[in-house]
């Protein structure tokens, strides 16, 4: 048969309420510096600050990768034709005709013969 439960209440730390409260106060006083440290490190600004470093690191990695891709793309692109010097060239108007247009005159027979000679 199991022996009866003993009355251990004289060992209860809360039996002396004043002493017990003193113990709780003592623990809380000792905890205050750590609680304060935690309060400081958990302010909204510090939380954002905590995010800043990884976000900046990630942004730097993305920038480096994007730069590499850009350089590689530029290198692989075939050389493109020179851009036309002006509108007439872009439209394919022959050079002698451009002169006549600029000078605002009709071509003479000699101009036409000369133009034919140049194209040949």
């Amino acid at each position: 048969m199991e022996p009866e439960r003993l009355d251990l209440s004289p060992l209860d730390p809360a039996a002396d309420q004043l002493a017990y409260e003193r113990l709780i106060r003592r623990v809380m006083a000792a905890a205050e510096p750590e609680l304060e440290r935690r309060r400081i490190t958990r302010t909204p600004l510090s939380v954002l600050g905590g995010w800043a470093r990884p976000v900046l690191a990630a942004a730097a990695i993305v920038a480096v990768m994007a730069g590499s891709v850009l350089v590689a793309t530029e290198r692989d692109r075939p050389a493109q034709a020179q851009a036309p010097a002006d509108m007439a060239e872009a439209l394919g108007v022959p050079a002698p005709a451009v002169e006549w247009l600029v000078e605002g005159r009709e071509p003479t027979k000699a101009d036409l013969v000369l133009a034919m000679e140049r194209r040949r």
């Binding site: 209860d12 730390p13 709780i24 809380m28 905890a31 205050e32 609680l35 935690r38 309060r39 958990r42």
Partner: peptide, 22 residues
């Protein structure tokens, strides 16, 4: 809450577990 420095929350934990800890 205690992780965020809430002293009141930590005190509740202290009071809740002081006797078994003792």
């Amino acid at each position: 809450r205690a992780r965020e420095g809430d002293g009141a929350a930590f005190e509740v934990l202290v009071r809740r577990y002081m006797r078994p800890a003792y």
